[in-house]
Simulated assay, not measured.
Amino acid sequence: MEIWPAIDLRGGKCVRLRQGDYQQETIYGEPVEMAQKWVSEGATCLHLVDLDGARDGSNANLAAVKSIVEATKVPCQLGGGIRDEHSIERMLAIGVYRLIVGTKAIKDPAWFREMCRKYPHQLAAGIDARNGLVATDGWLETSGVSAIDLARDFQAEPIAAVIYTDIARDGMLQGVNLPAMTDMKRAITTPVIASGGVTTVDDIRQLAAAGLDGTIVGRALYEGTVTLQGCLEAAR
């Protein structure tokens, strides 16, 4: 199982939000330094989130993303603000390994399918859920669409993965929603990367045992409730 250390970007800084709340932000420093730290500790891939892009569709953190990609030389997946083909082209051009499309994939699934076919295995569906229902627009809106139904709708396309986030657990250090993650993994053939709530290495072991293809680890690394080495060992 892959371990994707998270680097959330806002205003050019590395930050963490509680449950996606922009009013509950902790700043952890310079993004490139943090990225290099995780790679030096054994990370083979990085999960980047453009929080400004997720909220308003801007590319305010483009320079930071480019710097991380160039400095680390490991696969970096990026989510936040990927809502048109121009954004896809621009981010792939600077070396981003994989792009996560969330809001636009949900609101315009025909467009997302077209993009998946045009950029095969370079796009992932970012499915964020609250109580099993899809949330959009930087988690500000909750739809009436089932997360699993949405994932099933996309699995016939050449998508790289489903990044499945449980919003209620994200940034709360309360453990993963193992039943929800397991249900998603069993429901589709597309690779599933779990996100939200990883707190201990036991969370990692449980996700790996359930067959998840990867997991994103954020606040637990920054707060020190796990070490990256411990996560990598548990994933193996």
Rank of each mutant, 00 (worst) to 15 (best):
Leu92His: 01
Tyr119Thr: 07
Ala124Lys: 00
Pro75Lys: 13
Arg117Cys: 07
Ala125Gly: 11
Lys73Leu: 06
Ile127Gln: 08
Ile106Leu: 13
Ala125His: 03
Gly80Asp: 10
Gly80Glu: 08
Asp128Glu: 10
Val96Ala: 11
Gln122Cys: 06
Ile82Val: 15
His86Gly: 14
Ser87Trp: 05
Met115Asn: 03
Arg130Ala: 00
Ile94Gln: 13
Tyr119Gly: 09
Ala110His: 14
Tyr119Ser: 09
Lys73Gln: 12
Gln77Gly: 04
Asp108Asn: 15
Gln77Ile: 05
Gln77Cys: 11
Gly95His: 13
Gly80Val: 07
Pro109Glu: 13
Ser87Thr: 11
Asp128Thr: 01
Gln122Ile: 00
Glu89Cys: 03
Ile106Ser: 03
Phe112Tyr: 11
His86Gln: 15
Val74Ser: 01
Ala124Ile: 01
Leu123Ala: 02
Ser87Gly: 07
Gly79Trp: 11
Lys107Phe: 02
Lys118His: 14
Ile88Gly: 09
Leu123Gly: 04
Leu123Thr: 02
Lys107Pro: 00
Ser87Arg: 15
Arg98Thr: 03
Ala105Gly: 10
Ala129Gly: 02
Phe112Met: 08
Val96Arg: 10
Leu99Tyr: 14
Pro75Ile: 08
Lys73Arg: 13
Tyr97Ala: 13
Arg90Asn: 08
Cys116Leu: 14
Leu99Gly: 10
Val74Ile: 03
Gln122Thr: 05
Ala71Asn: 02
Gly126Glu: 03
Lys104Ser: 13
Asp84Gly: 01
Gly95Phe: 13
Tyr97Phe: 15
Asp84Gln: 10
Glu89Ile: 10
Ala71Pro: 03
Met91Asp: 01
Pro109Ala: 11
Met91Pro: 00
Gly80Asn: 12
Ile106Asp: 01
Arg83Phe: 04
Asp108Leu: 02
Ala71Val: 04
Asn131Val: 08
Ala93His: 10
Ala110Pro: 04
Leu123Ser: 04
Leu92Gln: 02
Ala125Lys: 02
Asp128Trp: 00
Ile88Arg: 07
Ile106Gln: 08
Tyr119Phe: 15
Leu123Phe: 04
Val101Asn: 05
Lys104Gly: 07
Lys104Cys: 07
Gly80Trp: 10
His86Phe: 11
Asp128Lys: 01
Gly80Met: 11
Ile100Ser: 08
Arg113Ala: 14
Arg98Phe: 06
Glu89Pro: 00
Ala110Gln: 15
Val74Asp: 01
Leu123Val: 05
Leu92Ile: 04
Pro120Ala: 07
Cys116Phe: 04
Ala124His: 01
Arg113Glu: 15
Pro75Leu: 08
Arg117Phe: 03
Val96Ser: 10
Ile127Trp: 10
Ala71Lys: 01
Gln122Ser: 08
Ile127Arg: 04
His86Ser: 15
Cys116Asp: 04
Cys76Lys: 00
Glu85Asp: 03
Pro75Asn: 12
Gly95Ser: 12
Leu92Gly: 01
Tyr97Arg: 14
His86Ala: 15
Pro75Val: 07
Ala129Gln: 13
Lys118Ser: 12
Gly81Arg: 06
Glu89Met: 05
His121Glu: 14
Lys107Val: 10
Phe112Gly: 03
Met91Gly: 00
Arg98Tyr: 06
Asp128Tyr: 00
Gln122Asn: 01
Ile127Glu: 12
Gln122Ala: 12
Ile100Glu: 02
Arg117Leu: 09
Arg98Pro: 05
Asp84Lys: 09
Leu99Glu: 13
Gly81Thr: 06
Arg98Ala: 02
Cys76Ile: 06
Leu78Pro: 14
Gly79Cys: 07
Arg113Asp: 13
Gly81His: 02
Glu114Lys: 14
Arg83Gly: 10
